[in-house]
């Protein structure tokens, strides 16, 4: 009997902080078991493989590709397309690949805005000639160098290539990664398009005590108050994204007394995590509402220093509006 071939795995990086690479390594000794059955054929962060090697592979030669990071420049897009072509299964791995992630907040501006800020306006920048990065430069000798083109918007992976599965979280947790690898190794895969996380909301995993009457009188930022370890964050006036967020992380942040920031993204019936969270907070603010004036409500919302950044911290590029309108 022929020896069963090892599963070929690729770990591809887009616009990422590389936390997802580390998350994979965080499966620790279980990695040994994985590499008995699987072989990592491409993972630029942790091993010396070249993109050229992938280009030489046959189509669909890789069994599973974990793509982490958002797509925000031509290089990310090319690589995503290459890996898609060479892989049987493409997994959007981590919040950035799934929703655009933290990088997605760049959608509040555009390329021009970013370049102006970074290459001109920051206090530490000295650039009197206003030199800006170019995608192509030819020197006096006629030698040409190129740089990838930065896009005006940050995109989640599925906007550029077809995605088979999604593993959100920032970064994914080891148990979730193992469950996914086990499924890939055994071939026992869920239907295409599945988000490999719980269907429920984060609150369903949280064992903090909630008030009978859910209301907020004042909104606090986490550093402003001593946080009660037993009580629901919302009842303490902290903007915990739990009610608008998918479960699956085991409430690790909340257990560390930090409000949920929503990195596992919305549930399957939620179309815009930020809008939903904003609407919910506004609903429970200052019940009974009859006594509130427009000014009162405005004052509360002013307590939230950056509503867009708070409620869409990980999901702006997959939200309904996707980005800020720029002139």
């Amino acid at each position: 009997m022929a020896v069963k071939e090892k599963l070929k795995i690729a770990i591809c990086r887009g616009c990422t902080c590389s936390g997802c690479d580390i998350a994979i390594l965080d499966i620790h000794e279980r990695l040994l078991k994985v590499i008995e059955k699987a072989e990592i054929v491409y993972a630029p962060t942790i091993m010396d493989t070249k993109t050229e090697a992938v280009e030489k592979m046959k189509d669909r030669e890789i069994d599973v590709c974990f793509y982490h990071g958002a797509v925000r420049d031509s290089d990310n897009e090319e690589l995503a397309k290459l890996l898609r072509k060479k892989s049987k299964i493409m997994i959007a791995f981590g919040a950035c690949a799934c929703f655009g992630g933290i990088f997605g907040l760049a959608n509040t501006t555009d390329r021009k805005g970013i370049f102006e800020e970074v290459y001109k306006n920051t206090a530490s920048t000295v650039n009197p000639e206003g030199v800006m990065p170019q995608t192509k430069y030819t020197d006096k000798k006629g030698q040409t160098v190129t740089l990838p083109e930065i896009y005006d918007s940050v995109y989640p992976l599925q906007e550029k290539v077809e995605v088979d599965y999604y593993i959100p979280l920032c970064p994914p947790i080891p148990d979730q990664i193992m469950a996914c690898l086990d499924a890939a190794i055994s071939g026992n895969l869920p239907p295409k398009g599945t988000i490999l996380a719980s269907d429920k909301t984060l609150c369903s995993e949280c064992d903090r005590k909630r008030n009978q009457m859910r209301k907020i009188d004042k909104i606090h930022r986490p550093h402003e108050i001593p946080i009660d370890q037993e009580k629901c964050m919302l009842d303490q006036g902290l903007l915990c994204m739990g009610p608008a967020t998918r479960a699956g992380c085991g409430t690790i942040c909340v257990k560390a007394n930090v409000p949920c920031r929503g990195c596992n993204g919305p549930t399957r019936m939620e179309y815009d995590q930020g809008a939903n969270m904003l609407g919910m907070i506004a609903t429970i603010y200052g019940i009974p509402e009859e006594s509130l004036t427009d000014e009162d409500v405005k004052k509360v919302m002013e307590q939230i220093k950056d509503p867009l950044g708070t409620f869409y911290r990980f999901t702006l590029p997959t939200s309904i509006l996707k980005r800020t309108r720029t002139k």
Partner: peptide
């Protein structure tokens, strides 16, 4: 009213 006042800020 509460939701819309909030949304306007965003």
């Amino acid at each position: 009213r509460k939701r819309i006042t909030a949304l306007k800020e965003m």
